[in-house]
Design a protein around this nucleic acid. Structure first.
Lengths: 301, 301
DNA sequence: TAAAAATACTCCATAGGTATTTTAT
DNA sequence: ATAAAATACCTATGGAGTATTTTTA
């Protein structure tokens, strides 16, 4: 490949029309400039410029080379600013993966807040099951993730972000919805609509039911929180869902959260990422943003 | 300015996805590659790629830098071929200046022949008075010139290209045109149409007349050979013109060359150029072409 | 004849090599 | 376990400096 050092010196000489001006601009001595230009001419096998008293003149080869060096060095300049921009978070990319619950109810809002602060950073959110997210983070396909249950966290750093709670929901028309206070025993044997197996919400829900010594009939399994709510609203059964998923809908009135004496089903929503020595700047900024500001969508305690 | 050596090594690593493959491609050792990439990362202040067992992965900064190095090094590649093309005369420029006579009757055809040989070379022909051509060659605005008389040739190399002759012309209707043989004395006192003062043809013509001891009446001065021929054809007087200028027209019959016993008026058409150590390749090729082939338009002895 | 560029030399920092260790799958 | 990459250390060359001469308008 060409000697870019010599090309840059020639470029300056051609631009300023003088060896000594180029030397000054480059903060090197004038002989150094002469030598490098001569070497460049030697290696190209032809003269690039005619030295004359008043202003240099480019040969045709010199003009051709100069037209290229202008483009090359302006690209290099542009590249340096691009890198600076990424460093200064005026540019950059951040890929986040998450399971459905945080991906649908928490992260869209949090990412919006983050982007108000750093408008140049492009953020992608991928919603998938927790294990897939973890794998893709290990492979560096994703920068970081948020999920409700952690299957295999080897090689990952993590911290709990927010406390989630699985609540019981019913259609307002459901017999249990009318009653002021419910006991755990009221749930026993009821028809339930749950998320699909493999979902963290499902896993948490089932272990809570088990912990409370309850057995229920699973009449339907659905792969999305929204679908589950529609099914519950249609009166197909009771549902178990993150409190974040019912917040807007309870106010709208077509879903009711059942207040059951003694029901406790909490889980932390956890943020996780590779424990690399040097994290991408955009990622560091996002993690700092999460930990220092703990932004939470409005209407959530 | 950036360290292009390091950028090139990084570029190869990113392109081939491996430090050792890049080392092989670059014919340097693998540690050399490692070191240069590390240095580049250090000077940018951030990682460019993640080293992993199977294929490297670029960081976002790495991707940004790679997208630039691709453009930069393909430009550099293109530049090298462009220079090669100029060297190989597949490209290049040649600017020729000349006075009217060679510029109108000799060079257009000669340049045509040259361009058949070297189609990539762009040739410009500027027609002006001899002194202006010489000045512009000294200032390197023109590469070379051809003219009939040389005013001040200091600093120029030259060689005679072809022998020109100033001939006497008349309209076929002119009284002298009818006579088989003319003597010099027949010219004495005749009306003449000459080129403008400053023209080499004019200077040669006048010195020939003087040498033959003739005095004539200058009834008209014209700045172009073609205009002069029209005036002569219109019967406004006798004309003095290069034999190259009358060649096609005598056959056409509206101009007659007078055969005058004892008239001799020769001058060399001379090629000249700066005596630089290294001439542009296109110019060297053209000079070689002139000297070795001596191409002359058809119909000229 | 003066300012700009070219030479002549000396020196050192950078990039390269070899040998070896560390890392990651 | 085994390639690939990183580290350690030594070497050499390319590019820089100062002093000086040569060129050119």
């Amino acid at each position: 490949m060409a000697n870019f050092h010599q090309l840059y010196i020639f470029h300056m000489v051609a631009k300023l029309g003088s060896f000594s001006k180029a030397a000054e601009e480059l903060s090197i001595s004038q002989p150094a400039v002469s030598i490098q230009v001569r070497e460049l001419e030697k290696s190209l096998g032809c003269a690039l410029l005619h030295r004359m008293r008043r202003g240099l003149q480019l040969t045709d080869t010199g003009q051709a080379v100069f037209s290229y060096t202008q483009r090359i060095f302006s690209l290099a300049q542009e590249m340096e600013t691009a890198v600076q921009d990424i460093q200064g978070l005026k540019a950059g990319r951040l890929t986040i993966g998450s399971s459905t619950t945080p991906g649908e109810y928490i992260l869209p809002w949090v990412i919006g807040q983050f982007r108000q602060r750093y408008p140049g950073v492009e953020v992608t959110l991928t919603i998938s099951n927790t294990q897939a997210i973890v794998d893709r983070i290990i492979n560096r396909e994703l920068d970081m993730g948020m999920a409700g249950s952690l299957v295999d966290m080897e090689g990952l750093e993590s911290f709990p972000y927010i406390q989630d709670e699985i609540v019981l929901i019913a259609a307002p028309s459901h017999p249990l919805a009318a009653r002021e206070k419910l006991a755990l025993s009221d749930i026993e044997g009821q028809d339930f609509i749950l998320r699909e197996p493999g979902s963290a919400t499902r896993r948490t829900a089932e272990s809570c039911l088990r912990a409370h010594g309850l057995t229920v009939r699973t009449v339907m399994e659905l792969g999305s929180n929204e679908a589950l709510k529609r099914a519950v609203a249609a009166g197909l059964g009771l549902g178990l869902l993150s409190k974040f998923g019912v917040m807007p809908d309870t106010t709208a009135g077509f879903i009711k959260v059942l207040a059951i004496e003694g029901w406790r089903c909490q889980r932390p929503l956890t943020v996780f990422y590779r424990k690399d020595k040097h994290l991408p700047l955009a990622q560091r900024a996002f993690l700092r943003f999460l930990q220092e500001e703990r932004p939470v969508p409005p209407g959530i305690k």
